[in-house]
Amino acid sequence: MENPLEQFAIKKIIPWQIGDLDLSFTNSSLCMVVTVLFIVLTMSLCLRSRAVVPTKAQAAAESVYDFIHGIIGETLGRDGLKYFSLIFALFTFIAIGNMMGLLPYSFTFTSHIAAVGTLSVLFLILDIYFGIKHRGLRYLHTFFPEGLPWIMAPLIIPVETLSLLAKPFSLTIRLAVNMSVGHIMLEVLGTFILAMGLFGFIPLVADMCIIMFELFITLLQAYIYTTLSCVYLSMAISDEE
């Protein structure tokens, strides 16, 4: 039986080491590059004509646009539309990255805590930047809400800081764990297909069902990640405490 965790192994394609820093181009990096190229090419091809009466391809691309527009409207409101390109890039990158992992012999970079964690931390830094840009020094009230007595500061400041630091952690764990578990399940059932001989059709049918379910999960996780990122951004830029 094959090791179901082998699919998550990072393999160096172009090794590159600077001192202790490993900057090698890996299978994970390759999948990220392919994902970005796929999104850019598909969107460019679909929106090539830009007709008033859209073609099927243009309508498909526009429906993704409408979907993201809806998420932003529900979480950030109309003012949030200035972050559209950022949120659109985030959703498509995660959704296509998740779906690419379902292809045979591909690699799911969204199942790696390091990859998703970096993205989440980057988004937290952007949240803080946009928060300070919008609210100036009032952003510091995130850590100590206005109106509280100063004696509460030693208790409230660590709690609010932890609450902020936990956001990228919870985003990362939710996505990476969901992706890993689904792929492990597929791999384990896949090995049973040949091992069970004549009865191999049972795990085969189960595998097919799980692939359909995983397809739903990939989109659901991308939706959750994007929605929560928008919620955290709205919390950073909103004056409500």
């Binding site: 936990a166 952690f169 959750i224 929605t227």
Partner: peptide
Amino acid sequence: SVQIWAKALRLATDFVAPVFVG
């Protein structure tokens, strides 16, 4: 139903994550 899923998953991890980070 997708939003309800999102909210449920958010509540679960939002409670546990700060404890781990702490």
